[in-house]
Design a protein around this nucleic acid. Structure first.
Lengths: 210, 210, 210, 210
DNA sequence: CATGAATGAGTATTCATTCAT
DNA sequence: AATGAATGAATACTCATTCAT
């Protein structure tokens, strides 16, 4: 009956379950993870797991939420700084911290993200996406010149999604043909050149047109 | 003992199993697909399935191989034409055919790709990757100006992987914020501007610097 | 250790648990009732339930006892009146009050009786049976003519058990082929005719034979 | 996927499961019986049970059907004879064979009937009830004098249901206050006297009225 | 070669009962 | 006394795999 935890002990348990979920998934994969695994790792009985989560799905949902929120919490404090950077450096900084986030605590999130961020994702990336859109907005405010870039929503979509998946793909490749540094530099390059190019063209066009 | 099929009938059965696999996955999803489903759709007994494949994994592996090979077979004939195109149009043509490929035969491959192309995929993308690298090579031969682009391997990696995952992600989003056309145009734009920009810079730098 | 409650509060709790048991069973059925349900309805913690009852069985036993005692308490006051009635009316009155008893307080007892009065019941019908036997005795004292009926114990057994089960069966039939009134009239008829017939025969036989 | 059995082996298994069901229930009671118990007794794996029955409920349903059909098959051949008997003897014969039926093969059906013939029976007594109604009809044809009995449906209901439950109750009482013989004689007596009495009265009334 | 009935280890989930607070 | 969080044995059901026919 999915109890709403009120005591500290209970809250600690709820937390331990989610943590155990990440460890279990990192160990056995999403498909190989059982509620008993999770409970054992959390150091509780299976029954206790069901005191706080209606079913396995609910545990995964909580893990998702935790991961996304944690990602947001990791990136959010950087926004002010990123906004001030040159666009290439902004991309690099973002990706670098995304990598750190995925690798921290023994890659606790990495495996879960790889297994559960299927392309047919039900994953509520919303908070993360929202924050990244906010970043784009703020960046545009700070660098109004880029506002002339055509079809900003599309470019945001490509950059955000492409960025997330390429980084995940790279991190899961045991023997990647390029280094992570090359990857981020490449992405940063591509983005900054595109932006500058567009801006330049927009200026020219704008001048010519007026 | 997984027999190596030599007779036509056996070959037909092997084929039917893989086909049935795609249909089963499209119908029930990867998690919901059982060997009995596959055998039934293939019109054979479960026992027969195990005559040709050691286990379920082997069937999925065969499906993967089939899908990749089919993708290669779909794209390969286009290479001569693509090579001759402007870089933006080349990207658009490639992505357009990739979409067609994923949607053909009632999206036969789409569901499987979405469910199994996890980021931590063991997926043997090799043949596809190889072909796409060949494409890049040939394209560079046909358009030597682009050879000046710095770090071509990285850009290939980004474009190939980013392209595949972004398209899959877009196709699996029931309510995408941008159209597929916007997506391909955006990617093509980004790539072509980057290339031209780099080329221009390389030319300038080369001329000026030396 | 199932404590013997001596304090008012404890007595009230013991009572609340039994009451809650009936409500829980009426709501979820015997199979669907859990000790947590009962405790929650009783407004206490599960732990407290176990302070007063050794286990779930004990709660059900207490419910049984309560129900039987309540049935006795309901019928007992009527005995004086019933004893004075014609035998047919006596049966009707008894059955009518039995129905009322089962339906009262939203059929509080009905569901429990239907679910737990299996035929292989360990149910302590004793007090009820005893009272009904007392009724038969007193009725016979008040109407000595019936004393000539042969095998009174058997007829009591049939009437008492048959009456209880037929009424329960009828009340649990959502679409009974006959009305409750028809049922009681029929039973009353059968009993009274049998009794009169026997009495008459006994008289004749007695007179003629002696 | 609840296979429809076509092979003899399969049919034998289907049968063994139902048989095992009765044994398991006789041993552990309905509540204490598990699908693993049944499978073990049937000498098969649990999985096989689920090849033929969608779930535990389905097994119980099959047992019910089997028991009812068997009861009908036991009584049916006696109808011709019963119809010719005096009403008291008819009742006695019916009850005697009902007892035999419940006791046969080590009381194979008895425990199941006691546990599952809850008063809130979902039990499909239909075929049995139908047959007994047929018996009543045929009996009335053979003994038209009884046709004058008022409210025949009610009396049938009382006799049929009362008979079934009283016999079950008696058989489940480890220490019954009266013998089975006394019970049947008592019931037969009651029924026959009622019938004769009614008939007599009906005749008188009929005569008087005309 | 083909079959499909049989298998049983494995999984999610429940719930009576306990015990630290 | 009272509590309710924790427990874990127990249960229904699934499905990849085998093997007798």
């Amino acid at each position: 009956m999915t109890r709403t935890p009120r005591q500290k002990r209970a809250l600690a348990t709820v937390d331990a379950i989610v943590e155990a979920g990440f460890i279990a998934v990192a160990t056995h994969g999403v498909a190989g993870t059982t509620t008993n695994h999770i409970a054992e790792i959390a150091g509780i009985g299976v029954g206790s797991l069901y005191e706080y989560y209606a079913n396995k799905e609910a545990v995964y949902a909580a893990m998702q939420e935790r991961m996304i929120n944690d990602a947001v919490a990791t990136i959010q404090p950087l926004l002010n700084e990123i906004v001030r950077l040159d666009i290439g450096d902004a991309v690099k900084m973002l990706l670098a911290h995304f990598e750190i986030f995925l690798r921290e605590r023994d890659g606790r999130y990495l495996k879960y993200a790889q297994d559960s961020l299927n392309v047919n994702v039900k994953l509520q990336l919303e908070p993360l996406t929202k924050m990244l859109q906010e970043l784009v907005m703020r960046y545009l405010m700070a660098h109004p010149a880029y506002l002339r870039t055509p079809d900003i929503p599309t470019m945001s979509y490509i950059m955000i999604n492409g960025g997330i998946f390429i980084v995940l793909r790279h991190l899961s490749d045991p023997n990647p043909p390029i280094s992570f540094c090359q990857l981020t530099d490449g992405l940063a390059d591509m983005v900054s050149h595109y932006a500058h190019n567009q801006m330049a063209r927009a200026t020219v066009t704008g001048t010519a047109g007026d």
